[in-house]
């Protein structure tokens, strides 16, 4: 299987879907002539023309809403936010228009569209450019949320998201774009990963580290470290946060009886809060310890390198959380 970057995987997915379906178009800031702020859309303008790959003014609310309006007629817009930080400006159209349209029209009008771009912190970008947007999106019924952590997941899930008939928020990781991984060769057929399926990225039997998005890599590092210490950690990558693969979570908890949720975002009403609630609700009797969460510190992201490091989840904190649920601390 060829090894390509996360960025190339996304680019392949976009190109393949633009090729396959004329109703798909890509719109956002710098996506066309500039080849994308993160070069995800490199070469797409040249290949598909400015009808399909469209540069916008810096008007997140406006072009997100335009995308919703276009989706209302059956087109399949892929709306790129340069980062999800800027999508906060567009949340009215995402939540009030896209997510609720199918319901308030009594099933007449759906919005088959994707909002995509990087979410979460990179390096020293400070408070306004370093935040995980998952909770804002997943909170509202009517929207689906996908958070791929690897190149293969990025490709397969983006293709599925574009084909989905509901609005899908698709959150990438700025620090993932250069990460390489095996992705099936396009020559070997259409590679699509259905939404709602978690993947066990590493099998284990003592503790479950459940996570999503780029934190998968941190979870795997922590699992490696724990192994040296004789602890077998399982890493469950949810991949999609809505629909949520509850079965996979429960299966892992039934096996290990101990769980840690790892996420990039803030703790208060974070994704982990929901997962903890779910586990206590549906697998209480299987637990040998309370579920512990590892999150960003409950502060805006600081700029100073040392403070930023303190604010972010790191391997040691994940290991410490596992130790805690194993009563090894």
């Amino acid at each position: 299987m060829p090894e390509i970057t996360y960025r190339e995987a996304l680019n392949q997915a976009l190109a393949e879907e633009l090729e396959r379906d004329d109703s798909v178009f890509l719109m956002g800031e710098e996506v066309a002539e500039y080849d994308g702020a993160y070069k995800v859309s490199k070469g797409l303008l040249e290949r598909f023309g400015d009808r399909r790959v469209v540069d916008t003014p810096i008007s997140e609310l406006g072009f997100a809403g335009l995308g919703v309006g276009a989706a209302m007629t059956g087109l399949r817009p892929v709306i790129e936010f340069m980062t999800f930080n800027f999508s906060i400006l567009a949340l009215d159209q995402v939540i009030n228009s896209a997510a609720k349209m199918y319901y308030m029209t009594g099933g007449q009008i759906s919005c088959p569209m994707v909002f995509r771009g990087p979410s979460g912190a990179a390096l020293q970008l400070s408070a306004q450019h370093s935040q995980a947007a998952e909770t804002w999106y997943v909170h509202s019924p009517g929207i689906k949320l996908v958070t791929p952590g690897t190149p293969a997941d990025a490709k397969g899930l983006l293709k599925a998201s574009i084909r989905d008939n509901d609005p899908v928020a698709f959150m990438e990781g700025e620090l993932l774009y250069n990460v390489k991984g095996e992705v099936p060769d396009p020559e070997d057929g259409d590679f699509v990963i259905p939404l709602g399926k978690a993947e066990v990225k590493r099998e284990g039997s003592d503790v479950s580290i459940i996570t999503h998005g780029k934190m998968v890599h941190l979870a795997l590092q922590a699992a490696g470290k724990l192994e040296k210490d004789g602890v077998s950690a399982e890493v469950v990558d949810l991949r999609t946060l809505r629909p949520l693969d509850v079965e996979a979570i429960l299966k892992s908890v039934h096996k290990t009886n101990r769980a840690v949720y790892l996420e990039e975002g803030w703790p208060y009403v974070g994704i982990g809060s929901q997962i903890v609630a779910l586990i206590q609700d549906e697998a209480f009797d299987y637990l040998d310890a309370p579920v512990v969460r590892v999150t960003q510190a409950d502060v805006p992201m600081p700029y100073a390198k040392n403070l930023e490091k303190l604010a972010k989840p790191d391997v040691n904190r994940v290991v410490a959380a596992c130790d805690r649920v194993l009563y090894r601390d």
């Binding site: 989905d164 259905p194 939404l195 809505r242 629909p243 949520l244 693969d245």
Partner: peptide, 10 residues
């Protein structure tokens, strides 16, 4: 949702 995915909980 107009598409009730066969996997996962919506």
């Amino acid at each position: 949702y107009s598409e009730l995915n066969e996997h996962g909980r919506l």
